[in-house]
Write a protein that binds this DNA or RNA. Structure first.
Lengths: 211, 211
DNA sequence: GTCTGGTTCAACCAAATGGTTAACCGTTAC
DNA sequence: GTAACGGTTAACCATTTGGTTGAACCAGAC
């Protein structure tokens, strides 16, 4: 993944190297498990540089996390395209959202880890990442509510439905090692598996919502 | 949660105290982030006792993890009851599985963390936990395949369908802090939210599979 | 040339952490 | 009584880890 993370554009080369390395290591080892030395090694720089560019571990983590939340929210919004039918909207969203996670699994791991750890940073950064304009998830909720109103789909709770869509799009990445054990063809060709899975998810959810 | 974990019955009182405390701390802080002192404090014992009963951190973690995998698999199987219709089977499974996770969120966190960290321990312990008889997930796959064959539900890929069911049953626990931010009533009364969610999940999936 | 600013590095330090030890306590066996 | 034993404790040790420092490096400005 050559340019999966796209950190803030005002980062220098070294800062970007550090940022990318930190994201990978934090995502694998966890906020506390990650060692500064491991990040330095991954970034192929001296450990002192970490503290030169980012004050300390806490600062580095929060910087990485804050940007990850922004990226995650942005991808959610970008996956939501205006489409003539709800069917098309749903198909495009699943495709876009899953594709984003596939291109940047580390970001997803970071988000999930923060949730598992209690999510104390989530409140501030989630609100901050969605304050300009309506939050992307809310737009999807509204889209579903509208489709329900228009009779395009059954009458369902839009909030719960959005949560279900997100669940199915993300969980198989979260549990990827388990999936690869249980699901032989996933281990063989993950990319192909993801493609099949997108089809299956659209099919299941669309039928689940059809009148 | 007074007796959520039910470790091996041949554990002494102190061992159980340690085991329960370790599960909680490992689940919150992660395998590496967890501090032995924190586990000792949570178990209300001296730190040396951890090493007296379980050789070292690695041993303690693997013991806790192995038992958690077993418990997780067992709950999966126990949620699968013979029922006259597939509709009833699905309803009972969702109810049972969600209820298990609610009663022992720490176990779920451990499983997910191991997946996020790469799942190197999963292979061995998953196989071991499912070697006696057919694996519970496989039974559900067969059940869905049979229902599909019998025309009770649409023709779908049983493996993908099982993964979707599991995704929706687990993910809202995984992302609980985020859910509580986005979903006001979840924050207020989690128990009530879980009940509503079970209904929604059954409804969505059952319609998604209906012919 | 050399001064100056930001950048890079190896060596270093203090604190935290996993793990050990030797003494201690309470109960049981003789 | 006391010796032996499982269990418990505080103090201790060795290593790891986050973080610092001071010297070196390397442009470009003058």
């Amino acid at each position: 993944m050559p340019d999966a993370s796209t950190p803030r554009s005002d980062y220098s080369d070294t800062e970007r190297q550090i940022f990318d390395a930190a994201l990978q290591v934090f995502a694998r080892e966890g906020r506390h498990g990650a060692r500064m030395q491991a990040i330095a090694d991954a970034a192929d720089i001296n450990k002192a540089m970490l503290h030169y560019y980012f004050r300390d571990k806490k600062t580095l983590y929060e910087e990485v996390f804050a940007h990850t939340v922004r990226r995650f929210m942005a991808s959610f919004g970008e996956s939501l395209e205006e489409a003539p039918t709800f069917e098309e909207t749903l198909r495009v969203f699943i495709d876009g959202y899953v594709e984003f996670v596939r291109s940047d699994e580390a970001a997803m791991r970071l988000m999930v880890q923060e949730n598992l750890a209690g999510g104390s940073l989530l409140g501030k950064h989630l609100r901050e990442a969605t304050k300009s304009g309506e939050a992307p998830p809310q737009i999807l909720v509204d889209t579903i509510a509208a489709a329900s109103e228009a009779g395009e789909i059954r009458s369902v709770d839009p909030h719960h439905t959005v949560l279900s869509v997100i669940s199915t799009c993300l969980f198989f990445f979260v549990a990827r090692p388990t999936v690869e054990i249980m699901h032989p063809d996933a281990a063989g060709d993950w990319g192909a598996f993801v493609e099949v899975r997108k089809e299956h998810l659209f099919d299941l959810i669309y039928h689940g919502l059809a009148p």
